[in-house]
Design a protein around this nucleic acid. Structure first.
Lengths: 76, 76
DNA sequence: AATATTGCTATCAAATATGATAACATTGTA
DNA sequence: TACAATGTTATCATATTTGATAGCAATATT
């Protein structure tokens, strides 16, 4: 999985978990002190967010941070 | 958990999982195409590594990436 | 219809991570 | 003892993420 592919998969996962909580990008962004434009970039897979940001997302969505990285082990 | 506290906890976890595989910083760094000085910085909690790097670590250590983020839920 | 909300994209500056390298201490090994 | 490997810290340059902002389209909501 390339970096870009990873980012896209991660972005989709973040969006999915955010929508499960019926939260907007703006809301989650505010809770985590990041811009909504950045939320959009991240969910679109256009950037490679920091580990700490994943932790913040998880905290604010009240889920385990590890859920973001539960990718099916497709590749070696 | 502050950003710094997170980085320290994450760094310790990375070190622990790396040593479990009897791998040196140099070896894991080479496999992931990152400098050994960067490995040291990360494990010391002096930097906030990218999500993709966690993924690479997991792949090369043959573990689930989610293991890096399995922190005990100490904080709200 | 008008307004607000949401999400996307682009731009530029600021902050941060990483590469590359060097020097040092420590430990293992020849 | 020498030598290599390992890990740490520091520096500076480069790359990347993020902040801040704006404009746009689409969709609610009034």
């Amino acid at each position: 999985m390339t970096k870009k592919e990873f980012q896209i998969a991660l972005g989709k996962r973040i969006r999915q978990l955010r929508e499960d909580k019926n939260m907007s990008q703006t809301e989650l962004g505010n809770l985590c002190d990041i811009e909504r434009s950045n939320m959009s970039r991240i969910e679109a897979g256009n950037t490679n967010p920091s580990s700490y940001l994943l932790y913040l997302f998880a905290q604010k969505l009240e889920i385990e941070a590890s859920e973001f990285l539960n990718f099916k082990s497709l590749d070696k």
